[in-house]
Amino acid sequence: MLDQYGLIGVLAIIAFLFPFVGVGIAWMLRPKRPDPIKKSTYECGIETIGDAWVQFRAQYYLIALIFVIFDIEVIFLFPFAVAFEQVGLFAVFEAILFVVILAGGLIYAWKKNALEWQ
């Protein structure tokens, strides 16, 4: 099994180096004349006020939260799908119960308007 991952390991190194090599070549070719105006933050020509740490809304967190829960659910269901031919009808009902319980979470989030993007 480890042989199968050899190529992935080598590809990981090559795929990581490839963009860096490109940037390195560009670094040799391109002009380098930075000045404060060029390096200033691009904000529609207006002077920037403060740094970029604006306050974010909790909506982003709620979406991430629901995503985390369902991501875990998917991770549980993938091995189940692979083992599907080898399990009985009863096992299918167990998996259905698993999905239905988590679907309850989705309904809760829906009712509490956590899915609305206001």
Binding site: A26, R30, K39, D51, A52
Partner: peptide
């Protein structure tokens, strides 16, 4: 053309993360 374009890193940027992200 892209290889010969000037590449600007903005003043307040976090340099390592800024360069790592496109990679």
């Amino acid at each position: 053309k892209l290889f010969t374009k000037e590449d600007i890193t903005p003043a307040g940027a976090d340099r390592i993360t800024f360069n790592l992200a496109p990679t």
